[in-house]
Design a binder for these strands. Sequence first.
DNA 1: CTCGCCCACTCGTCTAGATACCTAAAGGAG
DNA 2: CTCCTTTAGGTATCTAGACGAGTGGGCGAG
Lengths: 262, 262
Amino acid sequence: MTSLPTSLLGDLDPTSDRAVFRQIADQLREAIDRGRFKEGEKLPSEAELVEHYGVSRMTVRNSFSILQGEGLVHAEHGKGVFVRPRPPVRRLASDRFARRHREQGKSAFIVEADAAGSHPQVDSLEVKEEKASQDISTRLGSVRRVLARRRRYLLDGRPVEFATSYLPLDIARDTPIAEPNPGPGGIYARLEELGHHLDHFEEEIRARMPSPSEVKTLRLASGVPVIHLIRTAYDTEGRAVEVCDTVMAADAYVLSYQLPAT
Amino acid sequence: MTSLPTSLLGDLDPTSDRAVFRQIADQLREAIDRGRFKEGEKLPSEAELVEHYGVSRMTVRNSFSILQGEGLVHAEHGKGVFVRPRPPVRRLASDRFARRHREQGKSAFIVEADAAGSHPQVDSLEVKEEKASQDISTRLGSVRRVLARRRRYLLDGRPVEFATSYLPLDIARDTPIAEPNPGPGGIYARLEELGHHLDHFEEEIRARMPSPSEVKTLRLASGVPVIHLIRTAYDTEGRAVEVCDTVMAADAYVLSYQLPAT
DNA sequence: CTCGCCCACTCGTCTAGATACCTAAAGGAG
DNA sequence: CTCCTTTAGGTATCTAGACGAGTGGGCGAG
């Protein structure tokens, strides 16, 4: 008999006004939280739960879809439903753009990932001139056309983030910044060489559910939000010289900031 | 006839290998994105879509549940399915704990909300001593018991955030910090009066889907992630004097940070 | 022994209902 | 005019079953 996996679960409370499929989801969630089902482990199959609870298959599937929405489990066609393993997390420190880091040569992403023992990749590089969106134009101070640098970052083959940098054409055109590979220290190093001394960055952070295209690009499991970060770089004259729009898989990141108390 | 609302939608492509309920979701999503259905507006009812597409009701509901998972729409029992309005967003600036703000008297939350023309409330205040969790203990430097201050913040009646501050007992016990209302400028002002001069804060930011209890506390619609912020306050001697654990409705917040480029 | 096929098990999608409960508006009782 | 009841039209939940399609193990043919 296959009664072993379901023996970890209780019974339904028919007097409860909580919907049956929610009760089942609750029990599964609790079993996962308590470690009765471990990361990567297979949950009881739909048929087994139908048997155990005496409900129809749609009801069981409904329960699973709740847990999927919470990002707790994922289904694999033909195999089963599994507890989703927590992926390794990338920490982004707020000093990651400090000048001293720019003098190393390699990009921050590569250096960090190597240090953490992961295999980093950069992907789908695209550099082109285009019309600035309303939002980007506002942030850069009424610029009509911009240089856009798009790329996607992967860690051990998994896409974790994609980003687009926008720079005013009068700054970036015909400079190494317009090259696919801008050279050691990245575009911030080039900006400084070109006389745009960086003064500070401003970062805006939002979290939301991904659009379908973001799901595709980041190969997101259902129930994983994205962190949307928009960074504007200002030079010492107070001019916005770059806007970087980044979308990150939220389950792969912790952002960390240091704030003065003064 | 009720053919007006559905006339904004196309037909299904039976040759496509995309599942019918996904095609329907795609069409509804696109119609929403294009503004054919506006914020707060009612989508066609399940019955109307059953009629329009010639599919069963479960299939239509399946489509709706996709859009709900994306946070695009919300269903109201007995009324219909509506395009979710984007709620007003609260901006949190990184200088919100600057000393000058503490000298005003009112708490940062109240001042800010008043300025934005919203009606702020603080709720479910609880102050008590308790055992520190492993994580809190680590952050505070191996403290066993702590003073915990819990509260929930509401804007125009809507819960937007709840937070718990943890302080070591040797700092907080028998001080105004242990009172439900710690007085003007909040606990940071009191800490400074007690000789714990604040040096800097460290903030860790994550985004994830809410737990069921968080859904309840923040009255979250499905498809809305939470931002989880953990702030540690350090005094000038380098000691962690407070950890504040905050969970925010992600659709109500934009966090904003200023970083020096040096 | 190895390869290829078949089959059992699994999740994915869809149908066609039934019952319950919620909401809002219409209409009748007071 | 106000309040209650009715009713029509919504969504919420659940059942029972059908077919499709991916996975992986067992087994027979070679």
